[in-house]
Amino acid sequence: MQKKNQTQKKKDYQKYVEQKAPKPKYVRNCIWAFLVGGAICTIGQFVHNNVEDLLGLTHLAATNVTTLVMIGLGAFFTGIGVYDKLGKLAGAGSIVPITGFANSIVSPAMEFKREGFVFGVAARMFNLAGPVLVYGITSSVIVGLIYYLIYN
């Protein structure tokens, strides 16, 4: 009985805390995410169009080059200490684009430099980005296997 009371008390408290906690500014956050995310993609489009024309690449090759350039940009702006400030403002607007993927690789790599170049930089590099590769690659293999079974 007392135990039950305790659980109820805890539940009540958690509910009370939820009410008390400030709500995120949804509209403001979404506007910033939209603007910054949109801008990053527009830069991507600009890079894509230019490499396609200037280097005479196929559409697919140009997409690959764009990814490469965007990752380079994300990594560079993380290095010079700008990307975290952008992220504070833009939230998902700078997390979701591939530049954010680069940020999540470069930031732990830089952070753990003092633990050495093997156990620090190299081992920690995929602390945050590793899951993206694990789930991305695994799900693509599953999709590939299903595709193989259907078409054979």
Partner: peptide, 16 residues
């Protein structure tokens, strides 16, 4: 770095 995220990670801190 021990409890949360690397300093240069571009995330938003919770209001609480």
């Amino acid at each position: 770095r021990q409890f949360r995220f690397p300093l240069e990670l571009g995330n938003q801190r919770a209001l609480t």
